[in-house]
Structure formats: C-alpha cells, structure tokens
Design a protein around this nucleic acid. Sequence first.
DNA 1: GCGTAAACGAGACGGTACGTCCAGTCTTATA
DNA 2: TATAAGACTGGACGTACCGTCTCGTTTACGC
Lengths: 191, 191, 191, 191
Amino acid sequence: MPNQRRGAPRSESARLAILQATARLFAQRGYEHLSIEGIAAEAGVSKQTIYRWWPAKSDLVADCLLDGMLLPSRLTIPDTGDLRADLIAWLEQLFQLLQEPDGRGLMISLIAAATANEQIGGRLRDSLGGESSLVARLATGVEAGQLRDDAPVAELGEALVGAMIVKALSGRPGESADAVRLVDALLVPPD
Amino acid sequence: MPNQRRGAPRSESARLAILQATARLFAQRGYEHLSIEGIAAEAGVSKQTIYRWWPAKSDLVADCLLDGMLLPSRLTIPDTGDLRADLIAWLEQLFQLLQEPDGRGLMISLIAAATANEQIGGRLRDSLGGESSLVARLATGVEAGQLRDDAPVAELGEALVGAMIVKALSGRPGESADAVRLVDALLVPPD
Amino acid sequence: MPNQRRGAPRSESARLAILQATARLFAQRGYEHLSIEGIAAEAGVSKQTIYRWWPAKSDLVADCLLDGMLLPSRLTIPDTGDLRADLIAWLEQLFQLLQEPDGRGLMISLIAAATANEQIGGRLRDSLGGESSLVARLATGVEAGQLRDDAPVAELGEALVGAMIVKALSGRPGESADAVRLVDALLVPPD
Amino acid sequence: MPNQRRGAPRSESARLAILQATARLFAQRGYEHLSIEGIAAEAGVSKQTIYRWWPAKSDLVADCLLDGMLLPSRLTIPDTGDLRADLIAWLEQLFQLLQEPDGRGLMISLIAAATANEQIGGRLRDSLGGESSLVARLATGVEAGQLRDDAPVAELGEALVGAMIVKALSGRPGESADAVRLVDALLVPPD
DNA sequence: GCGTAAACGAGACGGTACGTCCAGTCTTATA
DNA sequence: TATAAGACTGGACGTACCGTCTCGTTTACGC
C-alpha cells in the first residue's frame, strides 16, 4: 500500500527539537514563562511548525510529560511487595523534591500546566506523569492482601497525590513523618 | 495625636472598585484571562492605582479570596455534630460544583491562581478560602470522640482537599458515592 | 538570482499608511503632540510595525520630510535668472507662511523635530526639506555673475534660513520689507 | 503699610531650589528629558509648588535662562571697539562650544525649549539669553562708523544667530574660517 | 525525470497586555 | 495661605508574545 499523502513527511528532527526545547525551557523557567516564540527560537524552528502540530502550549507540555521528559525518573512508585513501605518511600521522595527550590518550581509548573489541560491533570493523578500508575500499585496491594478487597483504590490514589499537591501549593514543607502519618491514615489494613 | 502621614489617604472607593472588578472578571473569564488593564477599565481606575497597591495580579486575587468575594458562601463546612455526615455533605457540594461548567472553571482558576501565590494555596487548603477551617472541623471531631486522639488532622485535611483538586484537574467528575467512599476511607473511627 | 531574504516582504501599504498618518497628524497637531500610538491607530497598523522599521518618532518625520509630505510645494526656490528677486520672493513666501497661524506651527514643529534628528536639520538648511537646494541656487547666481566668485554660498544659505528660523522662534513677524533688507544685506554684488 | 496678602509668603528658598534643580537637570539631561516630577524631586519640593508658580516646563526654563543659569558667561559679546573682531571672536566661541558634545546638546536643548516658548526664542535672538544684546553691539558699530548708517541691524543679528542655529541643528561643525567668512559676508563697511 | 503538494525556515503583520513614566489635579496635615 | 507629601485619572512609552499570514526552499510521492 503506497503512502497516503504527497509532499514532504513530517520532520522527525523538528518534532524532537521542539519537544526537547520545550522540556529544557520548562525546567529552566517554568510553565508561566514558556512562550511559543521562545521554544521556536530555542529549537531552531519556525513558529508555524509548532502551530501546525500542536494547538496550544499546554498540549506541547502534555506531549513532553508523556515522553517522560519533564520528571526525574526516580519518582516512579517502587514495588518491593510491601505496599506501606513502597508508598512511604515514594511520598518521601516527593516531599524531598518539594524542598529543593527547583523541585517545588517544577511541581508548581506542572500544576499550572494541568490547569490548562486535563490530560496533564490525568497524568499527575496517575502518579505524576510517568509510566507507573499509583492505582495499579494499590490494586497490587489488594491482591497481596495488604488492603481490604473493597478499598476504594481510585479515591485513595487521588487523596495521596492530592495531599502532595496541596502541600506544594500552600508552601508547607512535607517531612518524612508526614509521609508515614498520611499513609497510615489512608491505608487501613484488612482485619 | 495627629495623623501619622501626609498626603491624600488611600481611596477606599478605588480599593473596593478594584476588588469588585477583579472578582467580577475572575468569575466571568477565569484567572488566565484576567488582565490588569481589564480590571482597571472595569473598575474605572488607572493602572497605576492598581500597581501602587498590589505587586501582582495574584496578590489582587488573594485579597479577593480573603474578602470572600470569589467563592459561594455555601461552601463552608457545616458543623451539625456528626463529623462524617458533615464532611460528606461538604464534599458532595464541592463535587456538585465541579459538575457545573462554571463551577469547574472557578476551581481551576483558583488552582491556577494558587500556582502563582502561596497565600492562595494556603486558603485553598484551609477549606477553600472561606472563614471556616477544615482542620478546625476535624479537631472538633476529635474532641467529640468521633476521631482517634492521634488522628493526623492536618494530613487528613490536605488529603480531602487534595482529592477534590485532583478530580478538578483531571476532569474526573466526583459523584456522591465517591464522597462517601473517600470520607469512609479517611475517617477511621476510634476503637 | 533568487531572492536575498526569506520571510514575507515588507508591506508597502503599511509603510505608506504610516507615513501618511504621520504627515496628517504632524500637520494637525504638531510634532510635540505626535505619538507613535496615535500614528499606529490613524494608520490602522500595529505599533510593532512602526518600531520594526523606524527607531524613533523623529526618523519617521524625517522620512515624511524626505518624501515631501510635510511642506507645501510652493516653498521651493524659484529660478527666474534674477537671483535677488528669486530670494526675495522665496523669503516673502516664507514670511507669509509664518504669519498664518498654522504656518508658524508647522515651522516650529519642524524645528522641534530637527532638534531630535540631524537629518531633519540638514533638510531644513537645504531650503526646508524639499528637492531644491538654496545653496545650489546661490551657486547658479555666482555663475551668472550676480554674486562674487568667492562668495561664501554655504554661509549665506545658512544665514538666510537661519534668519527665518530665528524669526519663527522669537515670534517676530517677518514683513516684505524685511525680506528685501535681509537679501540686500547679504548679497553684495560683484564690483 | 502692612502686607498686602494674608497667609504664608512665597518661599524664596523653594523658588531658588526649583530654578537650580531645573538648571542642573537641564544641563545634565537636556530639555527633552526634563520632567516636572524630576525637578520637584531634585529640588525637594512638591509638584504643586511648581505648578502654582509656573504654568509650564518651558516657562521654568525661560526663567532659568533669564537668570543666566543655563549659559556659560563667556558667551556674551565683547566690545573692544573693533566690531568685526568682536563678532568673529564671539562666533568662534560659539562654534567651539558646538564642537564639544555637551555644548551642542546644550544648544539643541535651548532650541527645543524655544520651540515651546517665544520668550526663550527672543532671548536666543538677543545673543543667546545673556544680558548683552547682539543688536545693541551692532548699533554701537554703526555709531562708531564701522557699519553703514542704514545697515539693517535687526536683520543682521537674526542672520548671525540663525546661521549658528542652523549649524547646530544640521550637525555641521562650524570652523574658525567660517566665522570669518560669515562676518565678512554680512558686514559691509561704509564706503 | 518532473510537476505538485506538503513541510519547513524566516519573518512581517494586527493585536493585546505588560509594567513604567510622567502630566496635571486633588486632598491631606503642617508651618 | 504656602508647602511637602502623596494618591488619583489618564495617556503614552517601548517590549514581549500571540496567532495568522506570506514568502522562498526543501523533500518525496505520483505521473
């Protein structure tokens, strides 16, 4: 079957350059100060090439997030078999990130981006945009008998991520003990 | 004792007009489309008068929020004596708000504003900017014996508000049953 | 040979609209009250388009002057063969212009513009911005034997124009007799 | 006879401070960049005090010029008895001033101010704002028999000052020889 | 190969808003 | 009543980006 379309195919190098430029500028200056013009200049690309493929700045960021270009990889949820320990470890890492100045900026920028794009919000909910899913980890915990069968995993996931987001937005630093308390409050073991 | 300062005193009418214009435009068009120029025009005031008293758009919004000009009054947490019922009722109202198109827009706008101003984030955490405090209500629950003495009220509050915020950001509608499940997951009654 | 530059070419219609708007507003309200914003509005053009091509208001006015859009065409120096008569006629026209209210305003505005831009000053010196040159006319007079060979034509030109400028600035009306006296004082015929 | 008016008399110290501040800022930054606000701050005076006594910026400058606060004193016309030598010396000094960067700026600023105020133009004409008068010096020359009785002294004065102004505006440097040529062209001795 | 059509760089364009400066007027309290 | 202080409306500044557009160039199919 021959090609569907005539004309030059989409330039992969331009696509990459744009996403990388976006990620770089996002990390450097935050979502608020991201501009299409700046991205085009940084990527060595014309504005039109961006507008041809992405309808809005937030969709660009969503693509970056999907490709894992925005978040440090350490933020994925571990699965050692011990749900409580895994969640605590994951939350502690998040709280630590929020205490680095750039870390908090990154999180705030992601929230700001989510404000403009539901997809980004969804990725945040499913454990911050990476491949792993918080809800999947909780479900594994149910299977392993570490959580009651009828535990509302979706709600628990939202509550965990949401607590972190609220901490980020209100500038209240999260400490290790908070992570423990939060997980213990949420995770009622089966009788 | 005579007055402390010379020069004309700050114009109360201008202050009010600015805050009201901000609230009006915020409700109409959202935080993203709020512009100082637009507020000045709506308030019949010069831009300089705004810049003289507020360093940034987000501080203006924070003042509005403090004065209760942005949120419907029904969103305060009730206190009927039954903590579980109160929390469920409050969450249901929030979820209902999120299902109205304007309601979700309002919440998203508040989160966007919080992104630029920690104070706003703090008000969101303390039950959405009003006078009432979610944490205070939880503490009342502890005193009434409806919650264990060592319940981490701060974390629970953050988790509740955060869950709602995550729902808002990810566009997942919250239903009444969700509210019940969430509250039941979080509120472990004393033995 | 292909085109030198990429990107859309400069819009001639915008260029013209800007110059015409400038000329119109200059004539109506004078150099002092000329504003880039006003010109942009009058020309139906964005401010950026003006700033892209002209670094300053005075350069815009200089371009208008060069294109002969600011001065009445009658102000060019005649060449009937009789130098003395030509100069007197030209000066009389200038003096008459200065006695019309708008005429004096025009001249004052030109001087104010020259204050910000040497090019404009140069055009004023070479007989007020038009195509004709006062010095060239004087040189013709030398050739015709109506002026001494070593007559300092440049200095005489500056003195003639300068006298008119001083009259304009000091509000002293120039009369016909003044023109005659001035020319006779400056133009010493050859022995 | 008691005072005519009630209330505090005009503050002489404020008046002086304002004029001195004006002169200082005029010299430093030129007429164009002079602002009432800046003068008030520099003088330690309120804006209202300036507006109470001077209707416009240009009137302030006119007053400074009258008080001799703007021009170097060396620019007065000498009177050694030799009219030609005096005029040449005076012009040479002017030309020299125009070749210093600040000197040209000063002259341009004065012309710009004259553009807004006829009085200033008049002072420029009467030999640049000082006490001495060019026309008076020329009249002395007539009395001394160095100029024809019917020499048009007013026109000659305007031509001399005007030539200098044109040089200043057009950025053409005046040299010593130019001064000689100009004076010789204008001053026809009696037969 | 050769035309044609899309992608692409460059960049001009009409706009909106920014945050700042200053004008000129006013309202206080003090001298 | 003059003054210092300073708040106020209003207009313009020069800049940054927006999203659209118009060029000339490049690339790859389909004839």
